[in-house]
Amino acid sequence: MPELTYAEAARIAIAEEMRRDPDVWALGEDLGRGGVFGQYAGLAEEFGPERICDTPISEASIMGASVGAAMVGTRPIVEMRFSDFALCAVDELVNQAAKARYMFGGQARVPMVIREPIGIWRSSAAQHSQSLEAWYTHIPGLVVVAPATPADNKGLLKSAIRCDDPVVYMEHKNLWGLAGEVPEGDERTIPLGAARVERAGTDVTVVSWSRMVQTCARAAATLEEEGISPEVIDLRTLWPWDRERVMESVARTGRLLVVHEAVAVGGFGAEVAATVAEELGAPVRRLGAPRIPIAYAPPLEDQARVTDEMIAAAVREMA
């Protein structure tokens, strides 16, 4: 299996899907030059400027035009550059893309993938660092995906492109350079809505997604040395989320910790924890960022981070 970075895996997924379906195209700022993170490198050379479409800095138009283009049968990949910038296009996503099928009584389909890079990325401050995935899980009509590994970033992105629902696809900016084994082949897709066990364990179920999966795995390795065995589940898709996998795990371990980089208040961890508490009555805890904007200065920025030490400490208290 070849080793690829998270960014390369996504680029290959797009190239494969664009070769197999002429209706797939991508649009966003600076895509012709490979995208701000290089995640579209080389695609304009292969597919041309119509299908790797450079756009003005008009987020509402990038999103809104994609809704119209999807309605007439194309399959746009919408690059928002930062999830923070996608807030300029919330009407187009929430009121239009997510609602069109329903409010027109099933007449419309809006197959689009909205790439919204999330996460803290050193000294990018309050408008380039947010993790806003919970907002979109709240909106009926959207699928929300947050891959944690290079292999998942290929397989899940391919599934998202093939999906007829609008998919908010949130890659973590700090993972672009993460390398890992990625299966080759056009049909190596990963189903949306299926979680993955990052690390099997018996004592505490730790549910996470995106970059925090790596942090949880590091904490779990430390805890194993202390004789505590956490099971780390990477949710991968936040909506619809794999309740069955989580419930099965918590039924065995008897306790749940949810960890995410997003602000803890109103985060998706609250939904997972509440669902587990309602269904199993198991003790639950959440770890997320304090309710502060993300600062610029490294020591201040670090106050918004969830660390492996914090995760390990929480698990120790629960175990």
Binding site: P140, L142, I190, T237
Partner: peptide, 11 residues
Amino acid sequence: EDVLDTTAARN
């Protein structure tokens, strides 16, 4: 009806 096709499914 007509909300989403995608359903949670074990891989």
